[in-house]
Amino acid sequence: MKKTLLENSVSEDKQMLSMVNRRYFLRSAGVAAATGAFILGACTDHDIQGDQTVDLGSGDVGILNYAYALEQLEAAFYTQVMMTPYAGMSAEEKMILTDIRDHEIVHRQFFKAALGGAAIKGLTPNFSSINFSDRASVLGAAKLFEDTGVQAYNGAGKLIVSADYLLLAGKIVSVEARHASAIRDLLMPNTGSFAGDDVLVSIMGFGGFDGAVPPSVILPAVQPFVMDKISGANLPS
């Protein structure tokens, strides 16, 4: 069952990436040539700053860069996991982690292509706190990244103006939620951990919803895993 869900997600991701190029992505959000100066201006600061603070930008572009930064982190993490598999990694674990890696790479490349010249630079990860040879350390970090990713997308949803961007973000967060469930099931198989009370919240009296956390909370939480200083000071709130 897990394999089917994850493989279907890979197919959906690849279709999304092939269908949405930069021209369509910008056009669908109503960004015409007249606003091109704004798009170019959004990347000026981090181009000049080089190795200094990476400013995500403002508006929808800033939120997309926010998502791009998180996807860079996740893609780099799973790439490292599969380059140096932990001792005793089972065939099932290898299959699941490989699929998740492929998803995250597609997500990362999707945002990079969609943002074009407005994309932030490639970030340098800092995984010094993770022991990639130890199963518990790797899966614990994976759980942290996936739970954080779902909460980040949910928290950023209300900040997105473009309905097209919001739809795309909704599709991606549904895949991230599958990742989170799969990782939790690897850590605690045959339990209710895949949808644990530690991540699900109640809204208007109805339970079973993933939490939503704003960028102002997410960015400090992920900063220890990135060498570059990331600033979301200009993001909408």
Rank of each mutant, 00 (worst) to 15 (best):
M89F: 03
H179L: 04
I172A: 10
S90Y: 12
A75W: 06
Q49A: 12
P125E: 13
F38T: 10
L200M: 15
K158W: 03
T35S: 15
K158Y: 06
V31Y: 12
F110E: 00
A141R: 12
N131I: 08
L166C: 02
G149A: 13
R23A: 03
L17K: 13
Y165P: 08
S202Q: 07
S128P: 10
T44K: 12
S28Q: 15
A33T: 11
A180P: 10
D228Y: 02
L235I: 08
S128M: 03
K143S: 11
N131E: 10
P214L: 03
R27T: 10
S128D: 14
N126L: 06
F209R: 04
G140I: 11
S181P: 05
G116C: 05
E93L: 09
S162E: 01
F206R: 15
N8Y: 02
I203K: 14
D51G: 01
G205Q: 06
A91F: 00
D134I: 03
N154L: 05
S129W: 04
E7H: 12
G62P: 14
G36Y: 13
E176F: 09
K143L: 14
G57S: 05
A37D: 09
L123A: 05
F127P: 11
V61C: 08
Y78D: 04
V81A: 07
K112M: 11
P215N: 01
I230M: 10
D102Y: 03
A34C: 14
D228K: 00
D185L: 02
E7Y: 14
G211R: 10
G149R: 04
N234L: 14
D51K: 10
E12G: 00
